[in-house]
């Protein structure tokens, strides 16, 4: 049964406020915006809270990640977040910004109206601040066995060739960076992530089902033929709305469902 409320230990309290530091000229910055950031300190034993940081926009890069790093540099170095590539390819800085899941490095501050509210990816165990525990998410990814299965003997110096058309079937699939924005945006995943694989794992399963070089499509479909693993998708489409790479997991899941029916009608 879906739990709509947060557990008692997860209810978010109001935290501290940090004013912007003086700029290089020693003056109070005039053009500031408020970043409201979810904080959780596992050492304190206290409930999570939201701290408010005033950030000088005249001396800040354009993206939300720039703002967060400026906060870390100048206001509170203890803010914890994952980040790496700062160009939308590593998927590390996935978080809930302004009510939607996306990458902090590709989300422009200017695109957000009002205060910039930042939370960890939804409905996940929080390790610290914006860092959530994605172990279960990765286990689900591993469970679809995301590697090529092909027993055919090929000379070591030969490639397994595809036609242009066969290769095109992988467009919209191989680009997934496993940031978890889609799965953790899905209400069905929130209520059933113990059994439902979620959009990211399903998209990656289909990435191999659709691959002309993979010989295990039937076995992969057999594995997904389950009331929960696949069919908890109710086409809510939060996944497609959230995907920072512009992919369409909802459509991909529909393709898997369609393949399920087609093979039964054979």
């Amino acid at each position: 049964m879906a739990e709509f409320k947060l557990p008692v230990n997860s209810i978010v309290k109001i935290g501290k406020t940090f004013s912007a530091t003086n700029n290089n000229a020693g003056e109070k910055p005039k053009n500031t915006r408020k970043f409201i950031v979810y904080r959780y300190d596992p050492a304190s034993g206290e409930n999570p809270r939201t701290d408010t940081f005033e950030v000088d926009m005249d001396n800040c890069g354009p993206m939300v990640l720039d703002g967060l790093l400026k906060i870390k540099d100048e206001l509170d170095s203890s803010v914890a977040l994952r980040r790496s590539c700062r160009e939308g390819i590593c998927g590390s800085c996935a978080m809930n910004i302004d009510g939607g899941n996306t990458l902090a490095c590709t989300k422009a501050i200017a695109d957000i109206e009002g205060d910039i509210k930042i939370y960890p990816l939804p409905h996940q165990p929080v390790i610290k601040d914006l860092v959530s525990d994605l172990t279960h998410f990765y286990e689900q990814y591993a469970s679809v066995e995301p590697w090529m299965k092909n027993d055919a003997e090929v000379e070591p110096d030969k490639e397994r060739l595809q036609t242009v058309e066969e290769r095109e079937k992988l467009d919209g699939l191989y680009e997934c960076i496993l940031c978890a924005c889609c799965s953790t945006s899905c209400p069905s995943y929130w209520w059933n992530s113990d059994k439902y694989l979620g959009p990211a794992a399903l998209l990656n399963s289909y990435r191999w089902i659709a691959d002309s070089r993979d010989q295990a499509s039937e076995a992969r479909l057999d594995d997904l033929e389950d009331p929960f693993k696949l069919y908890r998708c109710h086409t809510i489409m939060n996944c497609t709305e959230a995907c920072p790479k512009g992919l369409n997991p909802a459509k991909v899941i529909a393709k898997i469902k369609s393949k399920m029916i087609k093979r039964k009608m054979k």
């Binding site: 739990e3 709509f4 947060l6 557990p7 230990n9 997860s10 978010v12 979810y38 959780y40 596992p42 409930n47 999570p48 809930n96 302004d98 009510g99 939607g100 509210k117 939370y119 960890p120 990816l121 939804p122 409905h123 996940q124 165990p125 929080v126 390790i127 959530s132 525990d133 945006s185 209400p187 929130w190 209520w191 059933n192 992530s193 113990d194 109710h234 086409t235 809510i236 489409m237 939060n238 709305e241």
Partner: peptide, 26 residues
């Protein structure tokens, strides 16, 4: 799904701005 984790659960419905498609699904 029951929550038996000692760590907090990050906010979900409380903070998510549901898109039109999600509202119509509800």
């Amino acid at each position: 799904m029951s929550w038996d984790d000692k760590r907090p659960m990050s906010p979900h419905l409380q903070v998510y701005k549901l898109p039109l498609t999600a509202k119509l699904s509800i």
